[in-house]
């Protein structure tokens, strides 16, 4: 396999993941989704680190990714606890609720023209039933061990 081309491809994919996460972090308002986008940026960095590790035939890239995963887990614990606290205080996951912390003299952000909720947005993810229902043994059903 062409190692240099492999590295180049992986770096492009890593850059794309990082950029998409960055876009989501700047554009979304739901605190949980923002945090998820930060994790996505970490994924982009991980892809690049592993590709560099393979290209240079060195374990450093994979070591770095192991520690990224560990720190991301710690970060997820703390951040989600903080988000829960903020939710208890405000009753919403909306980041714009905290715009009172903005600089003095800045105009407040007001929602304009919120789109109506569509019917297809109300559909929840579902699980399809899997497996076969086992055949019921009639004799066992009618057998009463206590009698």
């Amino acid at each position: 396999m062409n190692e240099a081309a492999l590295l180049q491809n992986y770096l492009v994919v890593g850059g794309l993941l990082f950029g998409i996460g960055l876009l989501g972090f700047m554009v979304r308002r739901n605190m949980i989704v923002m945090f998820l986008c930060a994790e996505m940026m970490l994924q982009g960095v991980s892809v690049s680190a592993i590709a560099f590790g393979r290209y240079h035939n060195d374990w450093g890239g994979q070591m770095l990714v192991i520690f990224i995963i560990a720190v991301a887990a710690a970060e997820a614990g703390i951040a989600l606890a903080l988000i829960l606290m903020l939710y208890h205080k405000s009753g919403t996951l909306d980041m714009a609720f905290w715009q009172d912390m903005r600089e003095e003299g800045q105009p407040a952000f007001v929602d304009q023209g919120v789109p109506e909720e569509r019917a297809e947005d109300r559909v929840w993810p579902t699980l399809t039933p899997a497996g076969v229902e086992p055949a019921v043994d009639q004799e066992e059903q009618q057998h009463r061990s206590n009698v």
Binding site: A96, G113, P115, E117, D121
Partner: peptide, 9 residues
């Protein structure tokens, strides 16, 4: 489902 998810910034 919340309005702030539908509109974002």
């Amino acid at each position: 489902h919340s309005p702030y998810d539908r509109i974002s910034w």
